[in-house]
Structure formats: C-alpha cells, structure tokens
Design a protein around this nucleic acid. Structure first.
Lengths: 341, 341
DNA sequence: TTGTATGCGTTATCAG
DNA sequence: CTGATAACGCATACAA
C-alpha cells in the first residue's frame, strides 16, 4: 500500500464538512448547494480521491457482483455467451466473477461458496455438474442457461423448433433418407429435443430416417474417427439415395463435409448437410454450412433481464422469492448457406 | 437479505468467546486449545456460518482480485488465454474480474477505474487501446500480454522465432518463392516481428520473397474477399513456381487453403501453407494446416507468476516497485501437419 | 441543507 | 492462550 487511500474522512477534514455530507455528494448530490458541490468536487481531485466500492458494499449490502460458472471457453458457444453477458455491463453495471469448471461437483461447490463469500447477488450457471436442486438450495437468484433446470429459472434455445426447421428443410428438398447424427444425450438435457423433433417430424411426414447416436470422444481426433466410421456406414447403406444429414453441431457438420470433399472433391447432389449453432466453423468451412443459429445475444440478454429482475426483488424489504421457476425459450433461426439447395 | 448473515459476533455470543478468538480460529487455529477449536467448529455449522470475504478485504486490504481486460472472446486466442488464466485459480486463489473492451480508450479507462475501486491487486491487459505509459500510471502491478509494453512488464510469444521456423521450413522444402500475407501491423506491436523474421530469413538464404500486407476488413466476408484477391494475384504472378505461403494466422491460412481446394479440388504440390496460432480451425480445416503453435498455457502461467511476484512485493512494508519492466518471451513450436511436405 | 452516531463483518494492536 | 477496542471506508437513521 504505497500511500494510504484518500477517504471521506480526509475529504471531510479538508473541506470542513462531515463525512455524511461527502457521502451525500456522491449519492444525493442535489441535496447540497451547488457551491458546496463545487467545493467538494475541487477537493476530490486536489486530494486525488479514488472510491472504494468494497467499503460501499459492506455498508449497504449491494455487491453488484454476479457469478458465472462456465464449463469451458474452448467451445465457441460458451465464449460467445460469456462475451454477451460481459457486454451487458453497459446496461446494468453488474460486475462478473467468472469461474470455469468441468471437473466435478466438489470443485464447483467450492467455487460457489467462494462466490457467495463475495456477496454475489446472483448466479448464472452454464455447467452441468450440479443439479438444479442443489443450486436452488443456495437461496440466491440463479439462472441456468441451456441445462437441466427443474428447480431454478432458465433460458434455453428452443431446440425443438430448431431441429424442426432443419428437418423440414431436408424434407422439402426431397431427401430420400434423413439422418441425424448426435451423441447419446440424456433426456433431461434441453438439447435432447433436437432428437425428439427430428424423429417426430420424420414420422409425421412419413419419410425414412436414421438416428445415429454413436458419437463420442474427448478430442477432435477421437470424434473425427467416429464421424468417419459413420460416414462410411452411410455411404455403404444408402449408396444412390439423396441423403439429408442433420448433425448435432457445426463441428460435426464440418467434419462430415470434409470427409465428403476428400472423397468427391465437391459436395455431390446426393448430399445435404445442416449443422447447429452457427459457430464460426460453419462459415469458415470449405463450403459455408447451412445451420440452425442460436441467438446467443438474445439468450444472454434474456438471462440478464430475468436475473436482474430477481435480484431487484431480493433487495426489497419483503422479498418474495419466485413461486415457480421461470423458463424461457429462445427460437433459433435457420441460416441457409451452401450445403442445402 | 432473507435472514441476516451469521457473523463473528453471533458465534462469539454463542460460544462465550470474543470475536477476536473466532477470528483467530480461522487465521491462527493453533493458538487455540483443541477443545476450543472443537467448540467453535461445532458452533459454526449449527449456526450455519458463511464467511464474508468483503469484510475481510476491508479489514486487511488484500482483495485477492485480479482485473483482466481482453479485447474480445471471439478470437480463439483470447478465449483460450482467459481459460488458462482462470485455471490458475487452483494454484493462487486469485479471483478474476473480467472486462471485454475494444471500443476506445475512454471506455477502457472507466473499466480500470471500476476495477481499482474494487481494490484489485493486479491487472492483466490484452487489449491494445491504452498505451503502456498510461497503464503504468495506475501504480499497480500490470502485465501486458502480446501487446506494446514499453513501460510495463509483459509476456509475448517469441514471434521472431516462430516466423523464423516457418520460413525456414518453406525454404528447406525448396519453395521457389516465399510469400507472407498479413495485415499492415504497426512496428510497436510484438507481432511485427513475424514480418521482420520472414524478410530477414529470406534475405539471408537469398530466396525470392513477396510480402503482402494488404489484408484488412472487420468481418469474415470482408477479409475473405481480400484473401481471394491476393490468391488471384499470386496465381497469375507465379503460375508454375512452387509457392510457400506463410500467413499471419490460421484463419487466413484456412481461407487460402479453401480457395485452393475450390479451384483444384486438392492441394497441388506447387503450394505449401503455414499458419500461425494453432487455433482449432487449423486442425478442423479441409486439410490439417501446418502452423506455428503459441503456447498459450505457458504464456498464461508465466504471466501469473510474474504478476503474483509483483503483487507479493506490494504487500511488504516497504514495497520496491520494479526498477525496469520485465519482458519475457515464450518460444512457439512449429506444428507440422498436412499442408507442408 | 447539514451533522451525529451507529452499523456493516472482519482484522490488528495491545494488554493480560 | 484469550479479550477489549480500535480500525477499515462508507451508508443511513435520526436530529438539528
């Protein structure tokens, strides 16, 4: 601590006011005469005052902190979401304490304890490790984004609508066989709706379909190998049919497209491909990929609105916690590019 | 505020100790009898105590906060760096307040003011908007990552070495003409060394070279259009020669590779391509791209070491600020993949 | 419009 | 080994 901080006491002494008046200068300036405002204002920069928000928080209980827990930032979806959340600073002036966690529940609970000890007013959770029941038990406004959220409020993409749009496009384009490629997602996860919608839509329109949930792996290479296997299988099984492939995300879609290109040097008319997420890879691919675009900005914005609302409620004298969690769905948009006709 | 927080006062009352003893229980437990430790420990969870770090900070001045300012998280480089920095939590237990800023100096100054008001102990800057001189004036430990840093400590990739390795490989592979494609970087930016090394190496080995710094644009499409123009020019100018292309980053490299593939359906032997960064796109491309890999984990780790060291110094009774800023360079590694022989 | 007194939850100093 | 008491920097009733 080089030189001690300048405090209200110092300013008060210097200006011959009381600390209270200095406090008021910041919080209710109109209650001072213009003359005195000016005096204090002068004193502030001759003394070089710098405010101390922590002291303020301790005194009034409003930390303006929001905790965020993301699984990682490697996936574009998460880093983009974080960007959008951070950018809400200009509207709400909440500060964000960010933790990245995907190594188990204990670690994550520790992080939350730590966050709580900093008096965060709210929490945004994107990781999947803790149950919503556990999260609800912390007695603090929580918003889940795209995860299981039975006991807490949440924002999710309308996965059903997204998948429906993709599937419909493939049907409209007269594909002979529709194929959905995905990991074996749990039914509690919102993204499971992508599988549901695909299947139900295919059934409704009575088109043949094939659902392959064999994707797995922790590295790009591992996953690529699985996709290659799937590609081979499809090539063998549906040789002369027009294949409409709907993949769980753009990374898979890009892999699949690359395999096709490596074999044929182009995208033959017997293939249509649709991804999910509208991540950068979808446009950077050898052929810009048609994809279901998640409206990450809208999701982030909605999450903040919901959270702010609940945090405001907490500040009232008799805060009424939500009777039921609020769940909102954001409709994704189909972005047509060059892998569909 | 549902129920008031449990404080030391409550615990003291309950256990018939003083607040001081409770404090000691947490900070110097050995100075209590085991029996009394046990008593307090019991009281803690029957009362449901939750610690308040803000109060602690106010009392002892150590916030354990570090501020981070990144330009954006859209670029993989930044999001990966942030991930790595966040992961240092397990070693140092510093918490991170993150701001994203690339819209001008005023905004960024405001952010820093805000960060300072939260008593951050150190600052990590990845954005380019504020001069190192300005940053140094804040009188707080600052580490710059991959940016101008005359007046503050910094970590950068050894761009010269990286570029040297790439250029050498292209020479070794007997390219007739070496071409470097980049934006027109300022000479103060560390990345300028990539251009320098390319030119100097070409001269030293007396191979013909061509430096094209015409890349510009704010969107993928804009940049792609420029790259296309450059591609056309190169095709016309060096039709039958073996071309060794070294691009400023993997995104450019991927664009270039896609253009080649779209024209030839493969990578003809008259082309070699090397990117920079080892970002995901380099492996996800139609052909895995040879690239200069920045060791982001090492950079982040080194940055934290340096920062922690300086923050520790600040906590001493007579802190000696650094006489000169410390600058460290991290050597990148050449990752050979399928776009070089 | 301004001041006094007290509290926020913890640590630090000094005494015993 | 334990306790009183005064910081830390600011906010807020309540008075004036």
């Amino acid at each position: 601590m080089a030189k001690k901080q300048v405090t209200f006491a110092d300013i008060a002494e210097y200006t011959h006011f009381s600390k209270t008046t200095i406090s008021r200068y910041f919080n209710h300036p109109d209650s001072l005469t213009l003359e005195n405002q000016e005096k204090i204002s002068q004193a502030l920069d001759t003394l070089g005052y710098k405010k101390n928000k922590l002291a303020k928080v301790l005194a009034n209980g409003k930390s303006e902190f929001i905790g965020i827990i993301v699984p990682n930032l490697y996936l574009h979806y998460y880093s983009e979401m974080l960007t959008q959340l951070l950018s809400s600073y200009s509207n709400y002036h909440y500060k964000f304490l960010v933790f990245s966690s995907e190594h188990g529940a204990e670690e994550e609970q520790q992080y939350i304890e730590e966050l709580l000890s900093y008096q965060i007013e709210g929490l945004i959770v994107l990781s999947h490790t803790l149950s919503s029941q556990k999260l609800a038990s912390y007695q603090i406004p929580v918003i889940a984004i795209e995860r299981e959220a039975e006991y807490i409020s949440s924002i999710t993409t309308d996965n059903y609508m997204g998948s429906l749009q993709a599937t419909s496009l493939l049907i409209r384009d007269k594909c002979d066989i529709l194929i959905h490629i995905n990991v074996n997602v749990e039914k509690t996860v919102p993204a499971y709706d992508r599988i549901r919608a695909f299947e139900e839509t295919c059934k409704e329109y009575q088109v043949p379909y094939d659902i392959d949930l064999s994707v797995s792996g922790n590295s790009y290479q591992e996953i690529l190998n699985v996709i290659r296997r799937i590609f081979t299988r499809i090539e063998e099984k549906y040789p002369n049919q027009k294949k409409g492939i709907f993949l769980a995300n753009d990374t898979y879609a890009n892999m699949f497209l690359n395999l096709i290109f490596q074999k044929y040097g182009k995208l033959p008319p017997t293939y249509e491909i649709i991804g999910f997420d509208n991540s950068p890879i979808a446009s950077e691919s050898i052929l810009p990929i048609t994809t279901v675009g998640q409206q990450i900005d809208v999701i982030a914005q909605t999450a903040m609105e919901l959270l702010v609302q609940q945090m405001e409620e907490q500040k009232k004298r008799a805060p009424k916690p939500l009777e039921k969690p609020i769940h909102k769905q954001i409709t994704p948009v189909l972005i047509r590019r060059n892998t569909t006709s």
